[in-house]
């Protein structure tokens, strides 16, 4: 893409924030969002409909254990003879559900806390110091501890991955609020007697949406990675559920003789996270030219 294209895109993005002609046009015209989006939609479709067309991902077949990939069993079979292809397809569901859930919930909680911190001055210091403390705890360790306390289920894994992600969202929202509340149009609104809920919903919230969408994609990518790491370490979703992390965790013992058990889910995971990251970078460049210049 030439520099000129990039500049018109950025100008478009700025305009779209003010007049909002069509966000969709801008997004489709960005190559990163377009291709990343296509890849991601493909994975989503596979995750939703794929399991209906494969064999049972948990069906045992002791006669065909640790078979290498072939025309019949595309990704080979694992140490219980289960079909790795079916398991990888099913695992896509888990990964996408965890990624989406963590992104949506942490953005909602972070948005609320960020608005409070930015607007209710006495609470600002309390919230932000708490977030500082939370941020100094390494995310994976925090998740491991939370899960080992509450027992591993899909729900607790989502919560455990979500908690360390919240501070980043809170910081972002607070920064936006602090900038926007000094703007002349907000002062004008206050002078005109507009009440707080109206100021928040009309003036402050719209300004947080673009950076939040970008942040949400990064949270989603990192949540999917963390989920697989937890599964791999044996500290995540219960082992009977075929998530990508769990498949790879079980493949560890047989890695030297059957590397495909780790290879295929690993590639699937890397491609999915890559697609999310590419979309995130594209969104960042189009939605917020200010951040784009900094990164």
């Amino acid at each position: 893409m030439s520099n000129l294209d990039q500049e018109t895109l950025m100008a478009d993005a700025v305009l779209s924030q003010k007049e909002d002609p069509s966000l969709l046009t801008v997004m489709v015209r960005n190559r990163a969002i377009f291709w990343g989006g296509i890849l991601l939609s493909l994975f989503a479709l596979i995750a939703i409909f794929g399991p209906f067309f494969t064999v049972d991902p948990v069906a045992l077949s002791p006669m065909t254990r640790l078979r290498p990939p072939s025309a019949a069993i595309w990704f080979g079979s694992d140490f219980l003879g289960r079909d790795v292809f079916a398991r990888v397809i099913y695992g896509a569901r888990i990964s996408l559900v965890v990624g989406l859930a963590v992104a949506v919930i942490s953005v909602i909680i972070g948005l609320f806390l960020g608005l409070v911190a930015g607007y209710v001055r006495p609470l600002d210091a309390v919230i932000m110091r708490t977030m500082d403390g939370l941020m100094s705890i390494p995310a994976i360790l925090l998740a491991i501890a939370l899960i080992s306390l509450s027992g591993a289920t899909l729900g607790t894994v989502i919560i455990a991955i979500m908690i360390p992600e919240i501070p980043r969202v809170v910081r972002l929202v607070r920064a936006v609020v602090l900038t926007v509340r000094e703007e002349p149009y907000v002062e004008a609104a206050i002078a005109a007697g507009t009440r707080l809920p109206m100021i928040l919903s009309r003036h402050i919230l719209p300004n947080t949406i673009a950076p939040l969408i970008v942040q949400a994609t990064y949270v989603c990518a990192s949540a999917m990675l963390t989920e697989s790491i937890l599964g791999f370490l044996g500290a995540g979703i219960p082992p009977e559920i075929p998530s990508w992390g769990n498949i790879m965790s079980e493949g560890r013992t047989y890695f030297q003789i059957s590397p495909w058990i780790i290879f295929f889910p690993g590639v699937a995971l890397a491609l999915t996270v890559l697609a999310v990251n590419i979309v995130g970078d594209g969104l960042r460049d189009t939605l917020d030219p200010r951040i784009a210049r900094k990164m």
Binding site: A221, L225, S228, I229, F232, M248, F255, Q256, P259, I262, F263, G266, V267, L269, A270, L271, V273, L274, N277, I278, D281
Partner: peptide, 29 residues
């Protein structure tokens, strides 16, 4: 730098083990 953020640490570790230790046999597993 985008790819580095997308590949899980352990998958990378196993790929390195597979190529450098098991196939080329130049480093311990």
């Amino acid at each position: 730098s985008v790819a580095g953020f997308s590949v899980p640490v352990f998958v990378l570790g196993y790929i390195l083990i597979y190529v450098l230790s098991m196939q080329l046999k130049i480093l311990p597993v």
